[in-house]
C-alpha cells in the first residue's frame, strides 16, 4: 500500500543530514548532522524488514498463521543504535575538550591543523 515511501523518506533524512554536515560550522551541529544521517540509515534498515500486515517477531502468543516482520534488521538496528551512542558520546566529548581549549565551537576558528 505504502510502496517505496519509507525508503524515500529515509533517503531524504540522510540527504538532510549530509547537508547539515557540509553546511554547518558549529561542532555540535556537525554531530547533530551525523545523528540525522544515522537515524535515516537506521529507519531504512527497519523499513527493509517490513512485511505487509506483519506482527512483532518476539510476540509469544502470536496466532500460528501470522506473518511476522523480519527480525534480523531489527537486531541490526539495535546494534547500530548502540554503536551510534558510543560514537556520538566520543565526538561530543572531543567537542567539549576543544571548547575548553579554544572557548569556541566554531569549526573555522578552532582550526590549528590544516590537512
Amino acid at each position: 500500500m505504502i510502496g517505496n515511501t519509507p525508503f524515500v523518506v529515509c533517503m531524504i533524512l540522510v540527504a538532510l543530514g549530509l547537508w547539515a554536515l557540509l553546511s554547518r560550522r558549529n561542532l555540535i551541529k556537525i554531530v547533530i548532522g551525523i545523528k540525522i544521517i544515522e537515524n535515516g540509515v537506521n529507519l531504512f534498515l527497519v523499513a527493509t524488514g517490513y512485511v505487509q500486515d506483519g506482527i512483532v517477531p518476539i510476540y509469544t502468543y502470536a496466532p500460528p498463521d501470522a506473518t511476522m516482520v523480519l527480525p534480523t534488521p531489527q537486531a541490526l538496528t539495535l546494534t547500530s543504535i548502540v554503536i551510534g551512542l558510543a560514537t556520538t558520546a566520543l565526538m561530543l566529548a572531543f567537542a567539549v575538550v576543544i571548547h575548553r581549549h579554544k572557548k569556541t565551537l566554531d569549526g573555522r576558528k578552532v582550526t590549528e591543523l590544516s590537512g
Binding site: 554503536i83 560514537t87 572531543f94 581549549h101 591543523l113
Partner: peptide
C-alpha cells in the same frame, strides 16, 4: 591539537561507517 584531530577523524570515520551500513541495508 590532539582532540581536534580526533574530532575530524571521528567525523570522517562515522560518516564512512554510515555509508557502509546504508550499503549493507540496501544489499539486505
Amino acid at each position: 591539537r590532539g582532540p581536534e584531530a580526533a574530532f575530524k577523524t571521528m567525523v570522517m570515520y562515522t560518516v564512512g561507517g554510515l555509508f557502509v551500513l546504508l550499503a549493507i541495508a540496501l544489499l539486505y
